[in-house]
Design a protein around this nucleic acid. Structure first.
Lengths: 352, 352
DNA sequence: TTGTAGGCGTTATCAA
DNA sequence: TTGATAACGCCTACAA
């Protein structure tokens, strides 16, 4: 158990320089020496002190994630899946993940502090809102970053990884219209989140194409958690002219929606059609294998992996600004079918 | 924007020593000097380089969390709530949180590496199993740690924060017995996890007290996620002699259980009684305000806060080994009542 | 191919 | 109350 380079090099009868070079894979050191050094390092359980290395190199090999916490001490549940993906990349590429859980109003100051202290080499920005100040701030700080999602404007001035939410929801809506539905509800997330806004736009676009009026009474925008989904769906079902189909923006909301549907004694896929966006939340598994739902699927872990790889590439100077737009895929399940009133044989004339 | 102590001290006409002392709150520096230094630091947006400071002090002010990932790239969903709690403490006390997401079989090596690199001052151990090697390993490494939960043996040799799972489940079971139930099912987590084992023990203890035979056909032990809860409950309901009540070990499982119950057209609290353990999963909110379930409640965020505070106290030498056993509380909701066959007026003679 | 020496930015010791 | 100086452990020109 040798504490530092000095001791190790003395034991080997070599200079610190040579030992350091051997360990860091510099080409000029002879193979025999390198092998000898590596063996000795392993034998004595030596590894460089990370703080010392950082100080000497000026690189932290650490990526920061600032995670804002909302009213009820809640962290977005999708976050675990994202960091599972990103974390795998960090491991593979020798980076550390620093997570800072802060009150939403302290986020800006947290980025500033990370820069001042030279705490991280770059950060990942989560959950962009419509007019998001973070890209501008990070640019001015000179802190490399990748955004998971996009802002509404100026999204070409920085790197991002996003899902084509608009198209995904347009296609899902068209699918329902193709089945004959004309009263289609939307259980959406908060619309200050950009992804939610884009989902609504896709939904409305498809309705308009089909000549169906957008009905505000069929749209809800709220937090994407189970009880809220339940509440929204219950309200829709209690209305004068209830929907025959519903589009849900998250798996967690869908859980609540399904509950409300069942409580009303309705059969998914027969009495009412349901399509949910599915981030592949690892602890829910709502897809065709799970609850039988028809879903629009795009893995959030995958997005995490891409963000991590892009950011590290940027930090290491191998890459500039990159945009990655992932396409979600519609996976039919048993929760969709023609509206109850429509005979199965009678082909629907609606849509397209 | 001054980069380092040297520049700042030159600008002030003071030595680096004095400036450092002023900034770090040493008592020997005069108040006027200190104020002058602090003002200048703020003005020039100076803050010490964290790597340099760490190298000089030998303290990282960083806590590590090693998060094993299971088969399906899944991180325990309770984890977000835990780190929300712990993270708040880290912020308040000036610590950073380092999260390492690794394959389950690499956990040991990760701890070793954290120690070798002097990457962290201590770690939090999550999800102890029956014969857990980590406490022994960390002891031998000399890495301070706190366990969230307990192992089965030797739990007095290290600090932990745990919930009194055995008592919680015993009391919940007694509550059901008191209502007149005698066929009570248990939807438990994996029993290699210590908390799950203790929950079963509590459940069995209460049954035995009441002279009710433990029936293996009424017990399931599996992953605590929605689809699995659904599956387990469906199986129970399809059996020859179905339960009249069920005890569920997690909110996520309870979601699945509720779904299965509804699909069978049964009313919670009337046809079948349900009690769920509730970690206060922030994105579910299943308590009395939410789904109306009767729950055994103990906040996981609170546990996170205690773990963080205890570990930091240990690291800073203010505290030795501490054990904290939190009591969960039974919160009656509408999902429990007398068994269907029992007349409401007829007081049950069972239990206690 | 290996070694010498200086620097990275702090904190800590000792002296003034 | 303040300052010079030496660690802390590593990397990296530059020299040999």
């Amino acid at each position: 158990m040798l504490a530092n380079l000095k001791e190790l090099s003395e034991k080997l009868g070599l200079s610190q320089t040579t030992v350091s070079r051997a360990l860091n894979g510099y080409p000029e050191v002879s193979e025999t020496t390198r092998q000898r050094v590596i063996d000795a390092a392993r034998e004595h359980n030596y590894a460089p002190d990370s703080s010392a290395r950082r100080l000497a190199t000026g690189k932290t090999r650490t990526i920061g994630h600032v995670v804002p916490i909302s009213k009820h001490d809640m962290i977005n549940p999708h976050f675990t899946d994202f960091i599972a993906g990103a974390g795998a990349v960090y491991n593979r590429r020798g980076y550390d993940m620093l997570i800072s859980v802060v009150d939403a109003d302290k986020e800006t100051e947290t980025y500033r502090a990370m820069k001042r202290n030279r705490r991280v080499d770059g950060v990942i920005v989560h959950g962009p809102v419509a007019s998001d100040a973070r890209p501008g701030l990070l640019h001015s700080l000179g802190l490399p970053f990748v955004v998971h999602g996009r802002t509404l404007q100026d999204d070409d001035s920085y790197s991002w990884v996003d899902v084509n939410n608009r198209r995904a929801f347009a296609e899902a809506t068209r699918y329902l219209i193709g089945l004959g539905h004309r009263r289609i509800a939307l259980v959406n997330g908060w619309e200050h989140m950009v992804f939610a806004r884009r989902r609504r736009e896709g939904y409305e676009e498809a309705l308009r194409e089909a000549g169906i009026a957008v009905d505000p009474l069929l749209m809800s925008s709220n937090e994407m958690i189970e009880p809220v989904g339940h509440e929204a769906m219950t309200a829709f079902l209690a209305s004068d002219d209830p929907p025959t189909a519903v589009l849900v923006a998250s798996a967690l909301s869908a859980l609540g929606v399904m509950g409300a549907v069942r409580e009303h004694g309705l059969g998914p896929g027969t009495d009412i059609s349901i399509i949910s966006y599915d981030d592949k939340l690892s602890f829910l598994d709502i897809g065709p294998d799970g609850m039988g739902l028809t879903v629009i699927r795009s893995g959030i872990g995958e997005a995490g992996r891409h963000c991590a790889d892009m950011l590290i590439d940027m930090i290491e100077g191998r890459r500039g600004i990159v945009h990655m737009l992932l396409e979600a895929s519609l996976v039919p399940g048993t929760s969709t079918g023609p509206p109850a009133g429509v005979a199965v044989s009678g082909k629907s004339a609606a849509g397209r």
